[in-house]
Design a protein around this nucleic acid. Structure first.
Lengths: 223, 223
DNA sequence: ACAAAAGTGTTCCCGTTACACCCATGA
DNA sequence: TCATGGGTGTAACGGGAACACTTTTGT
């Protein structure tokens, strides 16, 4: 057919997977056991197959690591430099994903030799993964203030201190506690529950919950 | 080699090309003469080749249409649905480009059967091009207020009325003239020249120029 | 003289920021 | 009782929005 004059390429997905481990923002990385870039750290990836869309390929990578289907995930950028993979030419589409504490179990991660590494202690990464991570961080930094993506990293119920500390980590700057809580109060989709978390302090802190139903009916969000 | 278990795909670029024609924001479209989607309108595209990066492929499409190398261009999104191309499977990376009035000549466009069509009079497009255009519009709408991309659509010198009307078209809403000019005045990288445009009014309007040197030394922009 | 676009300041309001102390509890 | 994190209000400031008339000049 007409298209056949043109070359075909391997297409991969690379998933920049975020999670909170002990309250620290981490990336899921693996140390490559095969060439190319053997021994270097890299993000989790895989090749796109015939029977799946590119988005589906990213979901498959996520599913293998977590056993779950409905992980928050979004495309970041396509990377298409000729020599970005020193082995063969591969065009890669980067995605980022946000995992909540219940969305990963360490056994499954161990089986895939994936480890959580704190975002500000990243080892040197192979390929063009540093650029992918950089672009992803810019993206979520810009996005987290007007779209409620941060909740995907938290448990279903969380304290305001946890939420604030998450935002501080993502934005890389300290936030004023009273102003932060004022904005939370104005954001109707974050609601206080009757539950109290006693593990983080002697006094106990109210647990809050993100109400996506309220959010979807009034999609306004500003933190 | 190890990768060879995996399938390969055609990869294309699709360029959503904007231009100002008679002060109206337009897209460069073509009516397809070949299957698939013969007779439908589509944006300008091409297949990625072995010897070029994906970005380079987009630049090549632009170069063929304009004869120029340095067109403002940026990636929008990769589209990878299995059946997005009814002919064969093609994974496409969308780019948008902004052409100034001196960056296209109608003969060259005619040779490629490309025509300018006003952004609010678009015909039905084939493939997933409607989604590409929608995503692109969202992107430039969000971007034009904090990054000086609009100037790529204007001649080297322009009146403030032209600039305002461009922003009104992109944002889809009328802007207050005095507030607009106040913001322009605060933006050091837009400078008044000694020249006067007499074609747009009896009185004549001062011509302004975007100074990218100033912008690069103080990359701040807010309109 | 008049039509048509160019050009120009001020006021008000609201949202953002800065800031410090008391509370509840377990050890 | 004290150490620890939880929780609360107000005042000052600054940026954004609303708003109308005069100027210039070609016809």
């Amino acid at each position: 057919m007409f298209y056949s004059n043109n070359p075909r390429f391997f297409v991969s997905v690379d998933c920049i997977i975020f999670g909170l481990v002990n309250g620290k923002l981490c990336l899921l990385l693996t140390k490559r056991r095969f060439e190319p870039e053997k021994g270097k750290w890299s993000v989790m990836g895989g090749f796109v197959q015939e029977d799946e869309s590119v988005d589906d390929a990213a979901r498959r990578v996520l599913r293998h690591l977590t056993g779950l289907e409905d992980i928050y995930m979004e495309q970041v950028h396509a990377f298409g430099a000729i020599n970005r993979d020193p082995g063969e030419r591969v065009i890669s589409v980067a995605y980022y994903a946000l995992l909540g504490p219940d969305e990963y179990n360490l056994e499954l991660l161990e089986k895939h030799e994936a480890v959580w590494i704190e975002i500000d202690k990243l080892p040197p990464l192979g390929f063009d993964h540093p650029e992918m991570v950089k672009k992803t961080l810019e993206l979520i930094r810009a996005k987290c203030s007007h779209e409620p993506i941060g909740f995907n990293l938290l448990p279903a119920m969380f304290t305001l201190t946890q939420l604030q500390s998450l935002y501080e980590t993502i934005l890389g700057e300290p936030l004023d506690k009273r102003n932060f809580r004022k904005r939370v109060a104005e954001t109707h989709c974050i609601e206080k529950t009757e539950y109290i978390d006693k593990t983080g302090s002697r006094r106990g802190a109210s647990l809050y919950r993100f109400n996506d139903h309220v959010y979807l009916s009034h999609p306004q969000f500003k933190i």
